[in-house]
Design a binder for these strands. Structure first.
Lengths: 373, 373
DNA sequence: CTCACTTTCTATGGTCTCCACAATTAGTGG
DNA sequence: CCACTAATTGTGGAGACCATAGAAAGTGAG
């Protein structure tokens, strides 16, 4: 089993209790000590100690009591979303985007810029740098106050932050993004694949909030995959999980070809399908059918609670969802919920923010992971 | 993230520390207090307290000190494998098997019996009951001393222990195995799918001991699948994970047909292939090729550390492994290690034992899982 | 056989964290 | 203004951990 060391001395126990209290407070409305004590399982007295610590650390704040109830009015405490900030950067094939949020995920600044597919490495990086600068300026967040930054890139990213391989942005291959952004940002910079980060966002603030296992499809001109298994984003042994697109039999490579038969933008195709155009409907059906093969394989293998359709095409979920559901129904033993992402275009950047926050919070709590000697 | 409550009061801390100490002792040779203290991160004094507790609980025993070393000889302690026993039952299409082991996994008793495919529900259950009885008698383990029993069945099993659907044993569908064996055994009875349990065994005592993520193929006249992800056996939202075989595009349904072209037993086919017979080699190649499609899909999606080939065909791993490796190499971005199970025919029953032990140990340690109110 | 040396064992006292319980306080409602 | 309610504050105690110091049980050299 796992080799983690869970216990430790008394300070470790306090650390664990503080962590649970913070987690409870973060996920709910302001709360009295009595309520918090019940939720954490601690006594009221100890809860008070813990909260005092959290206030000293500026991670929790007191809010005015509620009037009009029986008994002495209880002090109430809330999680301080403004205690930290994070930056998320999404570098796509034809757009770069940046986002600054606080710990609650409230967006404080956003910026984006178009970049031609043919831009080349330097131009794309320069554009990314600029949206980051704009974003920080607009949000009024001092770069020194950042807890971390997350960067999303299409393609395979290794654990050090280097792009191992990118098909969508060929000139990207070999670039170390962590290093690049590390120069500008004096905080941990984490890099990961765009589909995976979009899945993370969906788990954080999207339709998969209460799902422990789900399959996320980043559907667009290419199809990406993110897996959340047992509540955790799955990266794989070498960080190469989610590359279903590489397998011809999965159908994801040729799926988009069916949409290319339509002259004009993909958006128009979906609009035509929505209006009932038979040729458009046929193309959509064939697209979904190909997409469903690899998806059904995953559903059968993993039996997830949910399949989430995200990415550019999720705007047209109304014409995609039902056919996808039908195809999966045909091929699977148990069809999971099939839902469309509601996060829109910022989902990837939001996932990058979450990546940064996860890392920062793990570091802050010391991570029980002391290694056995 | 997760809603678990980790902390608690001082007794909970002690519980955690005891648990870590026991885990360290279980996984290694007898150890002195100083060594154990280093590995658990506790002080020597506290380690002594913890070990005293464990001795009182009869989970740890003292062994004679090692002579001939400098300084005062240190007492040494070992994990007591004989502190508990578990039963594992494997009910297959043409064989039933039972196993009794101690906590170390040492097999204390075994029994098996052939059952014709056409046996029917009653006969098969009677045969299973008999091997269980034989096994308990031979091992000399009092049924009352069992910590639990695990039962492996082919097909889909729901969380209550009922067989929802079995293709290999049609008359099995609808049968509640937990209920059946619960009458005989006064301890928790857990039921799960055979492929999954074989994967569990492989993680416990097989080639996947040090792998956190691996794909297990139960290769035989049907192909089964077990997934271990992030160190945990993956069951899926409704316990239906691993049913890759249901998807035609995965190739697993027709794979066996290539072997059926050979007149005579499958074993002879593999032997002929081993001897260099070209027709046999062709059949094997086509079998592996079909098997590899679904496997490659999983490898690409999950990027596991290892693919383990188990089941009846693993005896012929020498003719299967290399072709499988080659196929995966062609289709995958990063090919994981491909290895054959070394557990032999008892792997499924052994996994059933592990299932029982896991449950019993979780129950014993109280499982931090108190729910928020 | 004795003595120096090494390492473990045992015992003591101190600190930290949690808890239970009692006394106090600040409101509501008649 | 007085009962009633529920939160706060304060006290004492128990449990678990740690550091440290001295006693104990071996080895190895002379």
């Amino acid at each position: 089993m796992s080799d983690e060391i869970l216990g430790g001395d008394l300070s470790r126990l306090r650390q664990l209790n503080t962590q649970t209290a913070l987690r409870v407070l973060r996920g709910a409305e302001p709360m009295t000590l009595t309520e918090l004590a019940k939720r954490t399982g601690l006594s009221r007295a100890s809860t008070e100690d813990v909260v005092d610590d959290l206030i000293a650390q500026r991670r929790v704040a007191e809010v005015p009591p509620v009037a009009g109830v029986m008994g002495r009015p209880a002090r109430r405490y809330r999680f301080r979303g403004d205690a930290g900030h994070a930056l998320g950067v999404d570098i796509g094939a034809h757009r770069v985007r940046a986002l600054v949020t606080d710990l609650d995920g409230t967006v404080l600044g956003r910026a984006q810029a178009e970049v031609p597919d043919s831009a080349g490495r330097e131009k794309r990086l320069a554009a990314a740098d600029e949206v980051v600068d704009t974003c920080l300026r607009d949000s009024g967040v001092d770069p020194a106050d950042l807890w971390g930054a997350g960067v999303a890139s299409s393609g395979l990213v290794d654990p050090t932050g280097k792009v191992v391989l990118s098909v969508a942005i060929p000139e990207w291959t070999g670039l170390n993004l962590a290093e690049h952004f590390g120069k500008k940002i004096q905080a941990p910079v984490l890099v990961d694949n765009d589909s995976r980060l979009a899945a993370l966002a969906e788990q954080w603030r999207g339709v998969a909030r209460y799902a422990k296992d789900f399959i996320y499809l980043l559907a667009g001109l290419r199809t990406g995959l993110g897996l959340v298994i047992d509540g955790k984003l799955h990266r794989g042994f070498a960080g190469a999980a989610g590359e279903m697109g590489a397998l011809p039999a999965a159908g994801w490579i040729r799926a988009q070809d069916h949409l290319a038969t339509w002259e004009g933008e993909v958006g128009d195709l979906f609009a035509a399908a929505r209006a009932g155009d038979r040729r458009a409907l046929g193309a959509v059906r064939r697209y979904v059918k190909d997409l469903s093969v690899g998806t059904a394989a995953l559903v059968l293998a993993l039996d997830p609670q949910m399949v989430v359709l995200g990415g550019g095409f999720s705007r047209s979920a109304d014409v995609l969802l039902e056919p996808l559901r039908r195809e999966l129904d045909k091929q699977c033993i148990r069809t999971p919920e099939v839902r469309a992402s509601t996060l829109g275009e910022e989902s990837v950047a939001l996932g990058a923010v979450r990546l940064a926050l996860d890392h920062a919070e793990r570091a802050m709590f010391g991570e029980a992971a002391r290694l056995k000697s």
